[in-house]
Design a binder for these strands. Structure first.
Lengths: 200, 200
DNA sequence: TTTTATTGATTGAACGTTCAATAAAAAAGA
DNA sequence: TCTTTTTTATTGAACGTTCAATCAATAAAA
């Protein structure tokens, strides 16, 4: 039933269907026919709106990265305090936002992580996102320690976030947000405690 | 040139070629022809020795897991001290053993991680390995803290190891073993310090 | 001569892309 | 208001490609 302005609607539907399909059968078996059927449209539409399957996959990864960026930005904007600790907690919270820990998003993310090692378009996206997280963390740590220490702490916390995230994605029982945040908070406090005690 | 006892030789060659092919072009493009050519044999051999492509992939993952187990076990056997801290350091070292941080092994591992979410055979292997790491960590932490605390610490350190490992795999410059171990050691010491100070 | 190991062309299934055909809304004309 | 025309959106069969698996043929050791 063709109307005007279908493009944004179809794009959203197809991106959503892509994540669901990857959640369901994995990236390898997420064929255009399967994705299209899940979105309730025909296969040809994908080439029409995304130029091909690769375009759809890239658009899907962009969507996930954008959602993550939004989740973090929102938490940081609603901060009352401006302390590094609260800022860093906001970043942690954003990374484990409800929108980021659903099965379909986590599985899709991991699939893209793996394939980004051989597809340059995805690799670039993934790299930019990585730098953003590291840079954000580093900037906050920098307020209470040396540049060298801050980089060290940022690397550590970034690894912890990714690690918790990865294990959540792989765990059959899914990611326990409460417990996961608790572990990240603990580590953060340990990092901050160490530098304060040196300063004292 | 058919001789007797070719099976173990061919199996080793093909498993090695599989990792190299995945390193080179990714799991999605690691076809049986490409793997076979890299091993210097014909494609039909794969079905002959592994029953099919899936069999080869499972055997490759088994090999990687076995190597990891060996790397850890070796470090633990060469310990002079029996302190939990040294044991835990040995586990960390084993996970970042040279045999585990090569590009081909890391890329292959990550590819299997992603596809283990939809292939039950791989999922089982991955789950067993996960439990082994967690169980090892937990047992050592248990010696200087409560069971609940030990589980908490084990979860944290396991996440840290996986996170460092994942970021090393994705980083264009590869994994910096020295720096990575340093971060893991730091976290471990923070975990141990916390419980000692409570005890005192 | 028998056994073991290996080849590689063939087969059938599955995939992404393409494009002529179609359907329905919107716009134009009566 | 009711046709007619134009535009936009969509379909799905056909096409060419690529893949894993198969197996009769072959080659070399035993």
């Amino acid at each position: 039933m063709p109307k005007l302005g279908m493009e944004p609607i179809r794009r959203r539907q197809l991106i959503q269907a892509t994540m669901e399909a990857i959640d369901d059968v994995g990236l390898a078996d997420a064929t255009v026919v399967r994705i299209a059927r899940r979105a309730g449209v025909s296969a040809g539409i994908i080439s029409h709106y995304f130029g091909g399957k690769d375009g759809l996959l890239e658009a899907t990864m962009r969507q996930i990265l954008w959602d993550l960026g939004q989740a973090v930005a929102q938490r940081r904007n609603h901060l009352t305090s401006q302390s590094p600790r609260d800022h860093l907690r906001a970043i942690i919270d954003g990374n484990f936002d409800r929108s980021q820990v659903s099965q379909s998003v986590m599985k899709t993310w991991l699939a893209f992580w793996a394939s980004s090692m051989h597809k340059h378009d995805l690799q670039r996206l993934q790299f930019v996102n990585d730098r953003r997280l590291f840079s954000n963390l580093c900037h906050q740590f920098r307020q209470c320690m040396s540049k060298q220490q801050a980089r060290h702490c940022a690397r550590g916390l970034a690894a912890m976030i990714d690690g918790l995230w990865l294990r959540g994605a792989l765990a059959p029982e899914g990611l326990d947000v409460e417990r996961t945040r608790h572990l990240a908070y603990d580590y953060l406090d340990k990092q901050l405690a160490q530098t304060t005690e040196r300063a004292s």
